[in-house]
């Protein structure tokens, strides 16, 4: 049995859940280790379970307890450990969300099972064991990873690596089974407060038709003027990778990537951005991607439609000039 573990907040299913379901279905097809079951945990998850039941699955488990109403690492670890230990799957597949990152390593440690994180695909099996592909060394290399044991194994899949629209739908809804989670409220040490958003974002990069994004390659804050000039010539918004916002050179609201905004403009021009996974997940859906980087090995070139290997301080002024002429 392969278990896909979905995620919800206040009854709303996290979209990445469908990617975990797709990944679990594909793993079952490759390994013959099906059927696929789906689990969803929370205070009251009937609505989420009902929509998950549309997927082609043997069963949807609604794992409920009042103590799971607000997410805590201790509560979710206890609930899932109980479910998984009772009926161990060959693999349990999660989406690599912030919540999963917060508790699933603890769950794996509690169960004593391996955990392969941030998987982007499946490799050729190795010595009869399924191999999981993940990016290492900042996306510069891909690694095929296998568990050291034949027992159950936990897997998390990277956002966007498995397409939600490839989820196989069932002919009729899968049965939903309600399971009372064994969670002792007094054993939960974290006291969570309600989630909140900071001041409304003034810049909505997701609506921009063109984006010029800048990364570490810009080296100095004063050089940002060059980027601004190019953005003006293109009629583009300015965005940045995390290090630029961390340094305070551009506001956080202009950050693209796993902890910033996700964008899919007509044109995404990446200047001096290496293309680490954390950035790539926020921009790889762009229609046309251009990379300008002096390092020919930079992973950004794997994503780009057009690339110039060169010094951005030489190329960008020439681009501004060329755009001026073409207008």
């Amino acid at each position: 049995m392969i278990l896909a573990v979905a995620e919800q907040r206040e009854g709303t299913l996290n979209r990445a859940s469908w990617e975990a379901v797709a990944a679990a279905q594909q793993l079952a097809a490759r390994t013959g280790l099906g059927p696929v079951r789906i689990a969803i945990a929370g205070g009251e998850v009937g609505g989420s379970a009902a929509s998950l039941a549309e997927a082609d699955a043997a069963e949807v488990v609604a794992l409920e307890a009042p103590a799971l109403g607000a997410y805590t690492a201790d509560g979710f670890t206890a609930a899932l450990a109980g479910l998984l230990a009772t009926d161990p799957p060959a693999f349990a597949v999660f989406a690599h969300t912030y919540q999963v990152r917060d508790f699933v390593p603890k769950l794996a440690a509690r169960l004593g099972w391996p955990l392969v994180t941030d998987v982007v695909g499946y490799g050729e099996p190795f010595e009869g064991r399924p191999a999981f592909t993940r990016h290492v060394f900042q996306g510069k290399l891909a690694a095929d990873v296998v568990a050291e044991s034949d027992g159950p194994c936990l897997v998390t899949v990277q956002a966007g690596a498995f397409q939600a629209d490839l989820v196989a739908r069932g002919a009729s809804p899968a049965p939903v089974r309600r399971v009372e989670a064994a969670v002792e409220p007094s054993a939960i040490r974290q006291k969570p407060e309600p989630p909140f958003q900071e001041a409304k974002q003034a810049v909505d990069l997701s609506q921009a038709a063109r984006i010029v994004a800048v990364g570490r390659g810009i080296k100095e804050q004063s050089k940002l003027a060059l980027v601004e000039e190019l953005a003006r010539a293109l009629g583009a918004e300015i965005a940045a990778s995390r290090p630029i916002c961390d340094a305070g050179w551009l506001p956080l609201e202009r950050q693209v990537g796993s902890s910033g905004q996700t964008v899919s403009p007509k044109l995404y021009l990446a200047l001096g951005i290496s293309g680490a996974i954390q950035h790539a997940v926020g921009m790889k859906g762009s229609r046309t991607i251009v990379a300008i980087n002096k390092d020919p090995e930079a992973p950004i070139f794997e994503l780009a439609d057009y690339g110039i290997v060169g010094d951005l301080f030489e190329v960008v002024p020439e681009l501004v000039k060329a755009l001026g002429k073409s207008a």
Partner: peptide
């Protein structure tokens, strides 16, 4: 360790 790398390679080109 509970997992190990069996193959390291250049990432696949998606484009």
């Amino acid at each position: 360790s509970r997992q190990r790398i069996v193959r390291l390679r250049a990432p696949e080109k998606t484009k």
